[in-house]
Write a protein that binds this DNA or RNA. Structure first.
Lengths: 216, 216
DNA sequence: TAATGTTCGTGATAGCTTCTAACTGATTGT
DNA sequence: ACAATCAGTTAGAAGCTATCACGAACATTA
């Protein structure tokens, strides 16, 4: 006998259909990009008429926002899983690259061209901030960066609230930002196919950037 | 008396209207992004009916391709102008940043999210390759990078045709790729607004990345 | 059990888009 | 001056988002 009925069959059906819609949406995004996402096409592929989807999503924008939210969550999960199993900063980097290669358009959905005027809901930026914390923690666990502290380190001393006022010294925060921006640099170029036809292996450039990041 | 009439009045009119169309297109892209570019809206803003534009462009795709071409040309011009007036690698970097900040959406039009299936015409990739040459030249003019040559440098030794078989040693090519990917990393994050609300000054992060790139 | 309310999916419709086709009128070259 | 070319028009097909009103299936309650 089922005792804790926390959801009615209707609710289950509803969430199931919502999930199916998102599944088709991801498929469509992966093959044609987010700008080509069509509610109508999804509905037809699910065997129902266009307006039916509006029972499940307020519109195209809400669906895309939901996909963005899922993408952020998936990325955060990948980071947490890596950090949870004892990965250091290099481990995080490899987890990020694997996650990105898994679905390039998913990566671009959150790190790609921004739509002017669009602002992500608060809960999304929260997830992003949490991800950043994982990175900063991994940077703090590393041997502190050598070399002389530059102007940016001094500047970061006074502007560290983005890291939740993490107790790490500013060169650590600096390294976290470099980690983020450099890996995003190689990854986005690789995923965009800018290296195809150039001959060299993007994985090795990624590795070289990572080594340079951790080394000194 | 005008002697060398290299173009008829009709041709002049044609190119003038084409330019005006592109002008409106850029305006629209800058404010709403490339995905929101509407031929119809452009036509209306120019005081004519939608289908009239098809006399000047084969369709939306050809217009966008033309804009991409112009963007690449503009970027190449910015690099050439900087290099021509004796700028070193840091000068190129600042020229790139200034060019990007001038019109973020123009930057994303060529360095942003790729549309799956779209392939740029050959002449565009030629311009891009030429730009790369300017960067490699500037890297070659710099003191050669210190530190031990890593695995990627060895790999580049055998994969250097992308640089037009530039005679520079592979650490120089390596630096050129790092230059490209790192600056793209900070720039794209800054232009995408990922740093807004974090408090620190993106220009200083850019400068720090540049210094680290040139320094050792 | 019967009546009531809620939810799902439909077709119709408005308004937008790209793009083709046929037609008018002005401009150009012979 | 006449014929060919070219610019721009309206009409229309096909696609999209999104809203509305309706019927049918479901759930809940009297």
């Amino acid at each position: 006998m089922p005792e804790a009925r926390t959801s009615t069959p209707r609710e289950r059906y509803r969430t199931q259909v919502r999930a199916e819609i998102k599944e088709h949406a991801w498929e469509q995004i992966a093959t044609a990009g987010a700008s080509a996402l069509s509610l109508n096409a999804i509905a037809k592929r699910m065997g129902m008429s266009g307006p039916a989807l509006y029972r499940y999503f307020d519109g195209r924008d809400e669906l895309i926002t939901e996909l963005i939210r899922d993408a952020y969550r998936s990325q955060a999960d990948a980071f947490r899983a890596a950090a949870g199993s004892g990965a250091d900063l290099a481990g995080l980097a490899h987890a990020l690259r694997a996650w990105a290669l898994e679905d390039p358009q998913r990566y671009f959905l959150i790190h790609g061209t921004p739509v002017p005027g669009y602002h992500a809901p608060g809960d999304i930026t929260e997830i992003a901030a949490e991800t950043m914390t994982v990175i900063v923690d991994a940077c703090a666990a590393l041997a502190s960066p050598g070399g002389t502290a530059g102007a940016f380190d001094a500047h970061l001393e006074d502007h560290r609230q983005w890291a939740g006022d993490h107790p790490a010294p500013s060169p650590v925060l600096h390294r976290a930002l470099s980690f983020w921006s450099r890996l995003h640099g190689v990854l986005s170029l690789e995923l965009a196919g800018q290296f195809t036809g150039m001959g060299f292996d993007p994985a090795l450039l990624f590795e070289a950037e990572l080594k340079d990041l951790i080394g000194p």
